[in-house]
Structures are given as structure tokens and as C-alpha cells.
Design a protein around this nucleic acid. Structure first.
Length: 990
DNA sequence: CCCCAACCGTA
DNA sequence: GTACGGTTGGGGG
């Protein structure tokens, strides 16, 4: 090894634990073998070996080794008997993965190094220093703080999960000391995980400060008498020997005997077939394909390797402590690839078998872009239409000239069909693009004209419209609402459809995005061409009709192809997981319902907004002057950074909270606190922020969304962007129009009904608390809702023994905050913040609440347990919300996921209820011969436009449909209550 | 031109 | 303490 070389040292043992806890807990091979950590490990190795240069490592390795712990009986155990004594057994799912990861390392042709009596860290340290001495550079792939002592200008660490380099500055930033002082710092702080004692009462912050002051540990111990803080001084003096022992435990050995000399770590070329055989045995479809591509191997002719799997204690090899429980040990299992992929799917015994067979068939099916065709004449189009009718199933996409389906024109259609949809093989899929709205990109004075060699829209519509409107032919799309709305504007109403985005959402809400890219990558092991690659972006970006037809054809046909493949994988999966009902009853019907709502839009009065904007501008300007006056200078008030400098620097006000980047927070809460202390400026800032927020986000932005033709505002609802099942609203977001302040409410007066109509707002009263009363079955809550009693007052009465009549508003306010807190998965910290009380008092409230309502605690505990066991929670209608991080080893992350998992069934059930109401609403109104049109949804509220003469007849229909929405699927144990009223604008209707 | 952090509007 | 989306400032390329 020499200068210019670069040695990569992977902390294999560290990676196993980290990956296991960071990755979704339920990643399993088809035979149930847990392989999440192995998968993460293989992907990381491949990335480092092929394009480390493109990660933040920035260099390509010349030498490479993966290091493991061999035995826990190391020299450290001799130094200190309790070392690592409180290490608990690794989780059961992790056990077989220890051996697999070693096998993976060998499959990658990489040295797999472990030495008896030493930890991986010592081996890494020894190699790193030796390599450094030759002038080479070293990257240690680990984020373990125990290794940070090794960092120098030539030795870096790399956190592969966060793609983050850790060098000297990063160590200082994180720990407050440079790497060479890490040993002393750790000696002072200790480590509860490894049972390194350290000095009691000294944490990282104090330790860094002491080392800054005294230089190093020995000096500190010698001069400990100078420390001013009594307790700290005494603790350090009393525990000096403990610190010295700790130092010996954390200091890494640089003299570990090395079986493999440094120079033997030179990176060898990959053995493609060997690696592929292993990856196939592990069923890593996506990585198998990437490796096969890179090695130019045909993966399909390579037999999966036979992999020995050990489930029992022996799986970890010798690094297990004596006396471990081996009762769960089983005989080694042979884990070859399952035969399912090759099985005749007609013979699939269960939906799960079919789903598995499809998934396997499609992850290894090759996608051949060269066989996509462009349809340019009516004969070809007729042929395709005939085939589509014969098959009865097509994947379909409408390519528009804008991402906004309310603005877009149609550039062309793409479709894909399988000659036999029961054959799970990519060979039988054909895909085509039908351009008819493309323009040529000539930049001359005449502008652009129609592109040549394409059918006319008339020719295409005449043939395609009947197919799209024929319920006997299933149309499969991805985010079909886009095409549905775009086509509806052009006189076509799609009948009979499926949406793979929604299938994925039902199957895996919370596990990641549901974009076509993400789904293709995940399920098909294939990354489609991105729109950017095809059309460019930014200033030079083209609208799709300007894209060259050949390029457009491949892009569009590929999308249809992938959509068809995805439906063949995901639809059986729905059945296997018993989620078909959720998909068919709660998701699919909303595509058409929402598309119609979006198309209708709502009238927003430009004049009202313009007048409000002027008022806001004047008021803000006046406050601005006053702010500059008080501050004594002009600055950018909207910059939290500059504002912080003024408030906490120049003016010397006491800082409150810090943001996560270490800046002083200038949040409304902090400013309110300062105002309460009698300071002038913070109040003004709060007022200024409110006014400018209203102006920029609402009064100034909304007019820009008024559609040039319809003169109305058309939001877009996103069906698959929340974990819980709620919708979200974008461009513009009409689910966050102000209501809480008088100033903000005025914006709602700009949302008006058209002439001869009124707006009707109908909202569920306390729907989430009612859902909670139902699912947790709380007698007092059920009774209160049955009797129509004020629920917060009832809660206060139960908790504080105050009668409901004449209850002080402060008492009720606190009970209300607790009720909300319960829905949000309560913590003493959060409740304390909300009520501005201290944490112990908040803890008392929670304790008392649980005493009065023990069923709520039971619900919370059982929900957490369910989430931990399954990785997801369910609404009362069976919708799933996944929380892959609920088993995180990070207590903060875990607690957050627990709270979210408690909230999701409540929020999600309420979301399901209003979805059911929306789906039923239109046919119900129609049956009642009412012309009311549903326009907007705001989570627990629906907004309609109703003819003046029909209001009295319509209100009860709306109310009943909403109140009965859970039935007959669920008989709620509490009644649902809906309030509805009509007015000429949204403010008065609500 | 793109991304992130901070902040704030809703249920 | 839950769930979202939009605007701004400020930094990077």
C-alpha cells in the first residue's frame, strides 16, 4: 500500500445492528427468513464498490476489508469483568443474519476478517494506523463513536445510511472535542451500552468543557481540586481510578495481530456469477438485476446458491457468551430460492401463493424498451383496439401538456396490454404510444406547428373513447385521477378502472412514496426514464407536446408497461393481505368523486382578496416602521436569523428555546413569552408575522389560482400522500384556510357561492373523540356522547370533581387539551408545553386521566403492542398504516412512532368515515333529485354549492348521509353528529 | 435552479 | 403530543 491508495474498512458487526434497527422490521424472504440487515448490507457494499465516488465518500477504494467481532471474551473482559455485561441477547430475527452477512461478504469477494480476543474496532484501528503510515487514505464505514478516536486528516469515517462523511470537523461538532481527545472524553462519560463506567454525573457536554479547560484526562485528574462545582469536583476525585480504567477500555488497540497483511486487502474484481447466485438465493431481485447488468451476466441461467442458515445461538458463531439460551435453536435450514417463481400460477393454492409467484416473476422479468411502438396510422390503432377488447384489460395513460389536469391539453395516449394476463411473464406485454397533439419545435417566427406523422385527435378519439367508456374493458392507471380529469374535460368519462398507486397506498401506507418510479424500483427492479430526462427541466424544459415523438413514445409506453406489470403484482397482493375491500370501497371510488369535485372548483372573489391584501399591507407597513424604530435599525424581519441577532444579540433579550441547528428560536411561543415579560418588540413581530403570512399565503397567492376559463379555483386532492388515510389538498391547499383569528377569518368571506346558490358547510362534531370512545369502548365517553353532553366539560368533571354547571373556563380548557393530547398519543412533555405548566404537573394530569379512564390506557398499550408486533396499525375499516421505525433502538424515534401509531387508527378511522360519506353522497343526492354539488373536503367538513330553492331539502340529506356513513360496515357504539348551515360565503356557512 | 430550515396556516 | 402544505430566507451549485 502506498500514498494515493485508499483503504475502505467496513465495521460489519456495527452495520448488522444498525441496519437491523434502521430498516423495516418485517423484511423477509419468501420462506420467512428475515433478511433486512443482509439486504441493507449487500446494497451498501455494492454501492461502495461501484460508485463510492458519487457518494459523499468521493473516492474509489483500492483496498477493502470487512471486519467482524469474533468473540466477546476480549482482553477488555480481563480488565473489567462487567464490560459489556448488560448486553442483552440480540433479537431473534437478527440471529440468522450474522452468518448470512459473513457469507455475503465472501460472495462479494471481499476479505472477511475477525480475530479471537479482539473486537472489530481494534482490528480496524490497527489496519487504519498501518495504512496511514504508508501514506494511504482510509475510510472507515461506520458511525460508531468508539471509532471516532481514529479520525485524522487521512482517516475519515463514513455513515453509509446517512451518506455522510465524518471527519475532524464533524467529530468536533458532535462531541465538542477533536478526535484525539475522544478517548479521554469517553473515559469521563462512560457508556451504558458497553457498561463502561466513566465518572458519574459527567455527560458529554461537561466532559468536553473540562477537557477544553484542562487539556487531557491525566491533567484533569491531577488538578481536579481546582474545579469550582462542589459535586463535580468530589465525583471526579472519588472516581479517578474508574476514569483511568474506562480509558483503557475505550482506547483501541493498535497492535492487534493481523492474519491478513495490509497489502493482501487489495480490491479484487467481482466474481459475477458467484455474487448473483448468492443474491438470488436471498431473493434480492433489484440488486440481482443491477449486478447482472454491471457484470454482463444473464441472471436467469445462474442457479441460486445453497445458503446455510442457522437460526439458533450457534448462528453468531463463537461470539456468543457462555450460558446463552439455546432452547430456540433449530437444525440448519436450507434456503434455496423458492420454487414459486417457476410454479404454474394456475396451480397457486392460495392468494398469497399467487401474489408471491407474481412478485417473483416480475422482479426478474426483463423490461425491453426497444419493443415499444408508436401508433401513427388508423390501421395500427384499430389492431390495438381490437386486441384491447379481446383481452379486456389495458394499462392506460393520458399524456398531458401540464401537470395540472385542469390546464393541460392532451398530447397523446399510451397503452399496454398482455396477450395473456394470466401469464406472469414480461415477454407477453406489448406497449404503444398514440401521439396526436404533438407540435414541432421550430423556433421560427411562425411559431410551432403540428408535428408530422401523427393521427389527428378526431381519428384517435373516435376509436379510443368507446373503449375508455366501455365498462367491459378495465383501464389500469397510475394516479388515474389525473387522466380521469383530463379526459373528462375533453368529453370522455372513463368507466371501469384500477389505480396501482392506490393499490400500493392500501398495501403499504407509511412505507414510502407511491410514485411510479418508486413502485417500479421496488416491485419490478427497474427505474423508468424520468420526465426530466425526456423533456428537460427549468427554463429549457419542454411541455410534453413539444417532445420529439420517438422519445415521447418510449417514455409514455414504458409508463403503461410498468403500470400493467405493477397491477399484476399488486392486485393479487391485495387479496392475499385481505385488503381488496379497503381498496375497492374506500379508495377506488374516490378517484371519480374527487375528480368531479376538483373540476367544479369554488368561486373566490378577487376583489375581496385584493381589498384585504391592501389592508394587510398597510397594517404590516405600520408595524414594520415601529419595529425598526424599536430595534434602532432596518433589517429583514422575515429572516429568523437576523431577527434572532437583533432580539438576543443587540437587545440582549433572554433566549428561550433553540432550534435543532442551534440557532435561537424566534417561534411565536418564544415571542409570546418575551411579550409576557413586558418586552415590546416581540409582540410587534408576532403581529407582523400574522399579517404577512395572511397576505403572502392567502390574499396574494389565491388569485393566481383562479382558472382563466372557469374563473374558479380548482384544488387538487392527493389520495396517497398521508400515512393515516386522510386526503391532502395542494395547489392551492384549501384545507388550511384561516379561521382562528378575526383577521384570518376574513379570507373565508372571499369563498363565495355562485348566483342563485348558497354554500353549505357540514362538519362532524368531535369525530375523533367519538371514534376513540368507540374503539376503546369507554363507558363515560359513550354515555356523554349519547346524552349530547359537552365532552370536555364531562372530562374535567370526571378528573377534577367539578360539576359541569358553572365550570370555570380554565378547568375546561385543560380538560380539552388533555382530550386532544390523548388523540395525539399524549406525553407529559407535550401536554406541559401545550398548557404552559411543568412536566410533573402534566404527568399528574395524565395519571389522573388514566385512573378515571383506564380503558384508554388499555387501548394505547394494546395499540402499541400491535404496532410493534405487526409493523402497522389498522382503522376500524381495516385500512393499514405502517410504522417501520416503531422498533427503532433510538428511544426518541421509537416514542414518536408509538404516538403516531396510537393516533393513526383514530385519525384514520375518521378519515375513512368521511370517505364513505363522500362516496355515497353523489348517488344519494341524485336519488333524492337534488342538484347540490360537493366542492371541498377539509378532513371533517364537506362544502357544497346548493341552489337557493333546494337548501331546506338538501341539508337533511347531507347530514343523514354523513351521520350514517359508518353503517352498515360498522355499528358505532356512539352516535355521529353533523352540523350544517348555508350562507353566501364560507365564513358564515361554517 | 434546487434544497433545507424555520415558521405557521388547518383538522 | 397527531396529520398535512406553502412561503420565506439563505445557502449551495
Amino acid at each position: 500500500m502506498k500514498k494515493g491508495d485508499h483503504l475502505f474498512l467496513v465495521d460489519g458487526s456495527g452495520f448488522i445492528f444498525r441496519a437491523f434497527h434502521a430498516l423495516p422490521p418485517l423484511t423477509r424472504k419468501s420462506d420467512g427468513l428475515p433478511i433486512g440487515a443482509v439486504s441493507g448490507f449487500c446494497n451498501m457494499l455494492w454501492k461502495l464498490l461501484t460508485d463510492a465516488r458519487d457518494t459523499s465518500v468521493g473516492v474509489t477504494p483500492t483496498h477493502f476489508a470487512v471486519i467482524f467481532d469474533y468473540s466477546s471474551k476480549t482482553f477488555r473482559k480481563d480488565l473489567y469483568d462487567a464490560y459489556k455485561a448488560n448486553r442483552s441477547e440480540p433479537p431473534e430475527d437478527l440471529i440468522p443474519q450474522f452468518g448470512l452477512i459473513r457469507q455475503a461478504t465472501r460472495a462479494f469477494n471481499l476479505p472477511c476478517i475477525e480475530t479471537e480476543g479482539f473486537e472489530a474496532d481494534d482490528i480496524i484501528a490497527t489496519y487504519a494506523r498501518q495504512a496511514e503510515a504508508t501514506g494511504a487514505d482510509v475510510t472507515i464505514i461506520s458511525s460508531d463513536k468508539d471509532l471516532m478516536q481514529l479520525v485524522t486528516p487521512n482517516v475519515h469515517m463514513y455513515d453509509s445510511m446517512k451518506d455522510k462523511q465524518i471527519g475532524i470537523p464533524e467529530v468536533i461538532e458532535k462531541w465538542g472535542v477533536p478526535p484525539e481527545k475522544m478517548i479521554d472524553l469517553q473515559a469521563l462519560v462512560g457508556d451504558s451500552v458497553d457498561n463502561v463506567p466513566g465518572i458519574p454525573g459527567i455527560g458529554p457536554k461537561t466532559a468536553a468543557q473540562l477537557l477544553e479547560e484542562f487539556g487531557d484526562l491525566e491533567t484533569l485528574l491531577a488538578r481536579a481540586g481546582e474545579i469550582k462545582q462542589v459535586k463535580r469536583r468530589e465525583s471526579i476525585i472519588a472516581n479517578a481510578d474508574l476514569a483511568r480504567l474506562s480509558r483503557r477500555l475505550v482506547e483501541l488497540r493498535l497492535d492487534t495481530p493481523l492474519d491478513m497483511p495490509l497489502d493482501s486487502l487489495v480490491l479484487e474484481t467481482q466474481d459475477g456469477p458467484k455474487l448473483i447466485a448468492f443474491l438470488k438465493a436471498m431473493e434480492f431481485g433489484s440488486l440481482t438485476r443491477r449486478v447482472a447488468d454491471a457484470c454482463d451476466c444473464d441472471a436467469s441461467v445462474i442457479e441460486p446458491a445453497h445458503v446455510e442458515v442457522q437460526w439458533g445461538a450457534a448462528a453468531r458463531g463463537p461470539d456468543l457468551d457462555a450460558g446463552a439460551d439455546t432452547s430456540g435453536a433449530q437444525a440448519p435450514v436450507k434456503a434455496g430460492i423458492s420454487k414459486a417463481a417457476a410454479a404454474d400460477i394456475y396451480g397457486a393454492a392460495t392468494p398469497a401463493d399467487l401474489a408471491k409467484a407474481r412478485a417473483e416473476a416480475f422482479t426478474s422479468a426483463k423490461i425491453d424498451r426497444s419493443c415499444y411502438v408508436t401508433i401513427r396510422d388508423v390501421e395500427a390503432l384499430d389492431d390495438w383496439m381490437r386486441a384491447a377488447r379481446e383481452t379486456g384489460v389495458i394499462a392506460f395513460e393520458a399524456e398531458g401538456t401540464s401537470i395540472d389536469p385542469m390546464q393541460a391539453e392532451i398530447a397523446g395516449f399510451s397503452l399496454a396490454l398482455a396477450d395473456n394476463t394470466h401469464t406472469p411473464s414480461g415477454r407477453d406485454i406489448r406497449a404503444a404510444y398514440i401521439p396526436f397533439g404533438h407540435r414541432s419545435g421550430s423556433d421560427d417566427l411562425l411559431g410551432s406547428g403540428r408535428a408530422e406523422h401523427q393521427l389527428t385527435s378526431g381519428e384517435v378519439f373516435e376509436r379510443v373513447k368507446p373503449l375508455l367508456e366501455d365498462a367491459a374493458v378495465l383501464k389500469i392507471g397510475h394516479n388515474l385521477k389525473y387522466a380521469y380529469l383530463l379526459l373528462k374535460r375533453h368529453g370522455i368519462e372513463i368507466a371501469s378502472y384500477d389505480d396501482v398507486m392506490l393499490m400500493s397506498y392500501v398495501l403499504e401506507a407509511g412505507k414510502g412514496p407511491h410514485s411510479l418510479d418508486a413502485l417500479s424500483d421496488r416491485w419490478l427492479g427497474h427505474m423508468p426514464a424520468s420526465f426530466k430526462e425526456v423533456a428537460g427541466s427549468g427554463k429549457s424544459g419542454l411541455s410534453f407536446d413539444m417532445v420529439d415523438i420517438e422519445r415521447a413514445s418510449v417514455y409514455a409506453a414504458e409508463k403503461a408497461d410498468l403500470t400493467l406489470r405493477l397491477s399484476m403484482v399488486l392486485k393479487p397482493r391485495l387479496a392475499a393481505d385481505q385488503l381488496t375491500r379497503v381498496y375497492e370501497r374506500l379508495e377506488r371510488p374516490l378517484v371519480a368523486t374527487l375528480a368531479r369535485m376538483e373540476e367544479r372548483g369554488i368561486t373566490v372573489d378577487r376583489q375581496i382578496l385584493s381589498r384585504l391584501s391592501g389592508e394587510l399591507a398597510q397594517k404590516a407597513a405600520a408595524i414594520e416602521d415601529a419595529i425598526y424604530e424599536t430595534a434602532g435599525e432596518r433589517f429583514t424581519i422575515g429572516s429568523p436569523k437576523q431577527l434572532g441577532d437583533i432580539l438576543f444579540g443587540k437587545m440582549g433579550l433572554p433566549g428561550g428555546a433553540k432550534t435543532k441547528t442551534g440557532q435561537w428560536s424566534t417561534s411565536a411561543q418564544v415571542l409570546e413569552d418575551l411579550a409576557a415579560m413586558g418586552h415590546d418588540l416581540p409582540r410587534k413581530i408576532v403581529d407582523w408575522r400574522q399579517l404577512t403570512k395572511l397576505k403572502s399565503t392567502y390574499t396574494d397567492a389565491l388569485p393566481g389560482y383562479i382558472h382563466p376559463q372557469t374563473k374558479r379555483v380548482h384544488t387538487s386532492y392527493s389520495l396517497a400522500s398521508t400515512t393515516t388515510g386522510r386526503l391532502s389538498s395542494v395547489e392551492p391547499n384549501l384545507q388550511n384556510i384561516p379561521i382562528r383569528t378575526t383577521e384570518g377569518r376574513k379570507i373565508r368571506t372571499a369563498f363565495i357561492s355562485s348566483v342563485g346558490h348558497k354554500l353549505v358547510s357540514a362538519d362532524y362534531s368531535q369525530i375523533e373523540l367519538r371514534v376513540l370512545a368507540h374503539v376503546a369502548d369507554i363507558p363515560q365517553l359513550r354515555q356523554a356522547f349519547a346524552d349530547g353532553i359537552d365532552i370536555h366539560a364531562m372530562t374535567a368533571s370526571e378528573m377534577f370533581g367539578v360539576p359541569v354547571e358553572g365550570m370555570p373556563s380554565e378547568i375546561r380548557r385543560r380538560a380539552k387539551a388533555i382530550n386532544f393530547g390523548i388523540i395525539y398519543g399524549i406525553s407529559a412533555f407535550g401536554l406541559a408545553n401545550q398548557l404552559s405548566i411543568d412536566r410533573s404537573e402534566a404527568g399528574e394530569y395524565i395519571k389522573r386521566y388514566f385512573e378515571r379512564f383506564p380503558g384508554i390506557r388499555d387501548y394505547m398499550d394494546s395499540t402499541k403492542a400491535f404496532a410493534r408486533d405487526h409493523g402497522y396499525v389498522e382503522t376500524i375499516f381495516g385500512r393499514r398504516a405502517y410504522y417501520p421505525e416503531i422498533r427503532s433502538s433510538n428511544p426518541q424515534v421509537r416514542a414518536f412512532n408509538e404516538r403516531a401509531a396510537i393516533n393513526a387508527p383514530i385519525q384514520g378511522s375518521a378519515a375513512d368515515i368521511i370517505r364513505r360519506a363522500m362516496i355515497r353522497m353523489e348517488p344519494t343526492l341524485q336519488a333524492a333529485k337534488l342538484a347540490a354539488r360537493m366542492l371541498l373536503q377539509v378532513h371533517d367538513e364537506l362544502i357544497f354549492e346548493v341552489e337557493d330553492g333546494e337548501i331546506e331539502a338538501t341539508l337533511p340529506v347531507i347530514v343523514a348521509t354523513m351521520e350514517e356513513a359508518a353503517m352498515p360496515a360498522i355499528a358505532m357504539r356512539v352516535p355521529l353528529k353533523v352540523d350544517a348551515r348555508a350562507a353566501s360565503n364560507w365564513d358564515e356557512a361554517h
